[in-house]
Design a binder for these strands. Structure first.
Lengths: 242, 242
DNA sequence: ATCCTACTCCCCAAAAACTGCGAGGGGGCG
DNA sequence: CGCCCCCTCGCAGTTTTTGGGGAGTAGGAT
């Protein structure tokens, strides 16, 4: 039975997923999911804000190692594309125009990754990001049919999988950082959108000295080395939004 | 037939949702969804980065107006809670301890919002955020049963609804920006993690002058007013990750 | 083959940010 | 009531960043 005919029962898959009891178990689950859909590969890949990664899936081990060693995280169009997208995306719709991207794809195919792929971005607070990816070797038409048919189920599986993975790795959700006071938030937000200290102070109708106090205070709370760093951290932690 | 017995067919709901053809249509769809589940209220609520809001749902109009006027966005535990959470959440698990939060809840109930609620956070790139919320008036046990039974379907509906809402409001998704060169990315990343220009230049083993060229170049590409702004934009657009 | 982009280096003066200090009023919470 | 946090304002000297300029090499794209 080919991967186009196979339509596993969603509730059974989800039940199996939700009954998993640890990270090792998730590895088994994802292999079962892969087999259930009769495709080549399935992957859950978490990317931490600082570039740390956690993954589990059916990609060949040497490819995973190569990926990490080569720093492909910064090249991989799947990561880049998913990161700035809302919705699941077929790999064909990603940007493969760069030289590095094409070299990466060739390298991936050489390591047994399929020519087709479908990736579902998953997000959490503070820019936390993961993606759930399927890969296979087949024609464009077949892949189109497969993804169209299974899209909904896959979205649900992706989110359930992410939930489970998070449950088992509580450390990945950073402790909520010290929050900023309303004035500090306003000050940092204005700086983040390009205002100089003088402009920001003017906008808030306070003296520049006062504004500086806020920025300093925020900087200390955030453990930042300078204003730019503080703004970056505040953005990263979702304390301010621009 | 009560809301506990009613289990609408998911595929029909999604089909109806995906066949919608505009924002007005979505309003009708969400009313149909609400009726389909036989609950009091259903709401899709988008919160823009700058505090702008877009919503559609079955909340009473005077409550919606009051919500906007009173600036409840900054008080609403549903917003605050969903914003820092990964997964769907029952309103009972939110933090209602603050004085403002309790006053808000009382006000909401007075305006016909149910005592029970379930909210699904939805996220996009750049901290974009929405939530899909159900509300009803019933006992804790009944609500527990309802949410447990329909959780999966609701997650899928929430994401599909968000996708549709985005399709109809293309302005909400910012156009992808010009990408940065590798050196520019390195430079901006180092600045974003707190390095001074001198330190960053040293780290990259280039002169500070050269580093400045990168930063300037990145700033121009990003249309940023200064370095801090450029770093903020680069982070926001996912061009750099810290 | 040619053009364009990325990468590297240099100068200089003005503007802005950083560091660290001190000080008082208001509000919430135990 | 006292404590702590938030908001507001001030001074001053040092360091850093920020505006533009120009100029050469190398490699990829058309």
């Amino acid at each position: 039975m080919g991967f186009l005919d196979e339509v596993p029962r969603l509730d059974r898959l989800i039940e199996r997923l939700e009954s998993s009891e640890g990270l090792d178990d998730l590895q088994i689950v994802i292999e079962e999911l892969r087999d259930g859909y009769s495709i080549d590969h399935m992957l859950y890949h978490w990317v931490n804000s600082n570039g740390d990664q956690y993954g589990c899936g059916t990609y060949p081990l040497d490819w995973v190692n190569r990926y990490v060693e080569k720093g492909y995280l910064r090249v991989d169009p799947v990561i880049i594309g998913c990161f700035q997208r809302f919705h699941p995306v077929d790999w064909k719709r990603l940007d493969w125009s760069g030289k590095a991207a094409r070299a990466f794809m060739q390298d991936a195919i050489n390591h047994g990754i399929g020519n087709q792929g479908y990736s579902i971005p998953i997000r959490g607070p503070n820019g936390q990001f993961a993606h759930f990816t399927l890969s296979h070797n087949c024609s464009d038409e077949d892949w189109q049919e497969f993804t169209t048919k299974n899209r909904r189920d896959l979205i649900l599986i992706a989110h359930s999988f992410n939930q489970k993975a998070l449950d088992f790795q509580p450390g990945r959700t950073p402790e909520p950082s010290q929050s900023l006071s309303p004035r500090e938030i306003e000050a940092m937000t204005l700086l983040a959108i390009g205002y100089s200290r003088a402009q920001a102070a003017d906008t808030l109708s306070i003296s520049e000295h006062t504004l500086r106090v806020y920025v300093e205070s925020a900087r200390h709370k955030l453990g930042a080395l300078n204003t730019t760093h503080a703004v970056a951290r505040a953005l990263n932690r979702g304390l301010i939004v621009i």
